[in-house]
Amino acid sequence: MKKYTDQGKNDTRSGYGAGMTELGRTNPKVVALCADLVGSLKIQEFIDENPERFFQVGIAEANMMGIAAGLTIGGKIPFTGTFANFSTGRVYDQIRQSIAYSGKNVKICASHAGLTLGEDGATHQILEDIGLMKMLPGMTVINPCDYNQTKAATIAIADHEGPVYLRFGRPKVANFTPADQKFEIGKALLLNEGSDVTIVATGHLVWEALIAAENLEKEGISAEVINIHTIKPLDSEAVLRSVKKTGCIVTAEEHNYLGGLGESISGMLATQHPTPQEFVATRDTFGESGTPAQLMEKYGLNNKAIHEAVHRVLNRK
């Protein structure tokens, strides 16, 4: 079993900021927009180095999405920045008509996704954003797992023609993927090979899946761990290859089970290779205030929850 090491805890939003800094230096078409959350999105360095390519729109997210759509007309590649809630639910129709239906090359970059936003509570903790975005025709949906991968994803989506939803978070989490990784949109990463069960995780839950796999190994259970950073388009091949070997699957995400990664996978498996599946996800509920760790424990989104889900699914094989 491959061992992964935390190179030092860091936040995925800083990975976004670092990716933007690099894009500012390498791609003159890239422009950044922000709705009064520059500090939260970690893009001050991009702004300092490219003031003419930064647009502060104020607390007006609907206008930001429209301006981003307009900036593509003239060849710019706009990256919008605000919290995940205000990047999706608040501006759904603006994204739907002016960006997705209009086929505009806008990158919707969303920080503070999921429960790990913490103390601000449910008004700011969106658990429905993956579902909202994946339902839009033509939208690519990406949820990277750590700082390095978020930086790589930020850089990669600039070269992808078409609208993208890039989701990341607030807390400092384990940084365990390679700093020099090449990010391939739509390509799942096999982190650990196993034979008894497949664990497919996205975002912050990938590290938890690796811990769960280690603990399962002590019980003699061989878990295959897949990091699926791209939820749409889904890497069906990678999932099918794995479940044909293991015969069961656990999906793990910081999102409602309705509309999330698990739902995408179950839909795909139902038609192509029906497989027992357990969902590690929130159960159609809003979040609440608390520390990230407390919330992930209470809502069943940590390695312990994955561990338990594996036992449940193994009993159904």
Binding site: A62, G66, Q97
Partner: peptide
């Protein structure tokens, strides 16, 4: 046609974005 419209209230934002792109392009 350069943008979809019909759901009302979105066109001015888009026009502003296109105007900003013109300025960046020195057009």
């Amino acid at each position: 046609v350069r943008i979809a419209s019909g759901s009302l209230g979105q066109g001015m934002s888009v026009a502003i974005g296109a105007a900003l792109a013109k300025k960046l392009n020195k057009d």
